[in-house]
């Protein structure tokens, strides 16, 4: 096989993978504060994209204004979700909260369908479609931009989780009762994690909206995002980044080998295999925290 072609597959796979990471970081944020995988992250990402498109195309704001305003709106929405829905469930079994996030995802899809209909809208970021050439290797500019955003968010959250508020969020993830006992506002912490995840959803929604258009399909990113988050370890931001790169490469290179053999569709098979094997072989993922055995 042509080495240059392999390198091209790997590099573009890694860049696409980082876009999965961008999505997965939102999942990790919520998991870190409430130990629940947020099944509504796909819905949030889609809403984030729609809100930006609405502000840009319908209201006519420039993108540099529409994106931050969309982020502010989503930040408030994240807090609102905690206030209205999650607070009642604090202390209930995790399955109940999981079902609630599923319900929320269906709700968000229904709302966007009702407001904006089913036709795909376009997000015009103004990034050129001219490929970039790295030697002989062909690279997509929008993927490069998205990968940069993912890495920027990764660095920002690594710093955040070492700050006092970040430490309080990690404390909440460890033990609600102990957090309450020292005066930490668990409700506000969980709300903050949803708010931050909703802002991440705007970033993911904008980039993915540019790549594949803004429509209901954006919410399906959940499947790959969840696979990346699980492979990375659900509560590890670093894990989400590394796992995104790994999944992106395996998917891109692997499908190139497998597609001719199985006649297409091997991307989904590869993602499914990664998810299933991770849960079976290494449930904590690559970097997830282990439950500490007490002696």
């Amino acid at each position: 096989m042509d080495l240059v072609f392999l390198a091209e597959l790997a590099i573009n796979g890694a860049l696409t993978g980082l876009l999965y990471s961008l999505f997965a970081i939102g999942l990790v944020l919520i998991y870190k504060a409430s130990s629940v995988p947020n099944l509504a992250q796909g819905g949030l990402t889609m809403v984030g994209a729609y809100v930006v498109v609405a502000l840009a195309s319908d209201v006519g704001l420039p993108l540099w204004l529409a994106i931050p305003l969309g982020a502010v709106f989503m930040f408030a929405l994240g807090f609102g979700i905690e206030r209205v829905a999650l607070r009642r469930l604090a202390g209930r079994p995790v399955v109940m909260i999981l079902m609630l996030t599923l319900g929320l995802d269906i709700f968000l899809r229904g709302v966007t369908l009702a407001i904006w209909g089913g036709t795909s809208r376009s997000m015009d970021l103004g990034v050129s479609y001219e490929p970039l050439f790295l030697g002989d290797i062909f690279i997509s500019r929008i993927h490069l931009v998205g990968a940069g955003v993912a890495i920027g968010l990764f660095v920002a959250f690594m710093i955040f989780f070492r700050s006092r508020s970040g430490i309080k969020l990690r404390a909440i993830a460890d033990d609600y009762m102990a957090s309450w006992s020292v005066g930490i506002s668990v409700e506000r912490g969980v709300g903050l994690s949803w708010a931050l995840a909703s802002v991440v959803a705007v970033a993911a929604g904008v980039i993915w909206g540019e790549i594949q258009g803004v429509d209901q399909a954006l919410s399906l990113l959940l499947l790959k995002g969840l696979t990346v988050a699980v492979l990375g370890g659900l509560d590890s931001i670093l894990g989400a980044v590394v796992a995104g790169i790994i999944l992106g490469i395996i998917e891109n290179v692997g499908s190139d080998f497998l597609d001719p053999l199985v006649g297409g569709g091997s991307r989904e098979l590869i993602v499914a295999a990664v998810l299933i094997l991770t849960v079976m072989i290494r449930p904590h993922g690559l970097f997830g925290r282990h439950d500490i055995e007490r002696v």
């Binding site: 990690r170 460890d174 009762m177 102990a178 006992s181």
Partner: peptide, 14 residues
């Protein structure tokens, strides 16, 4: 009930 995945120093900060 300490915060197990935090260090003692972070437990105090929290």
């Amino acid at each position: 009930r300490v915060f197990e995945h935090l260090t003692p120093d972070e437990n105090l900060t929290a």
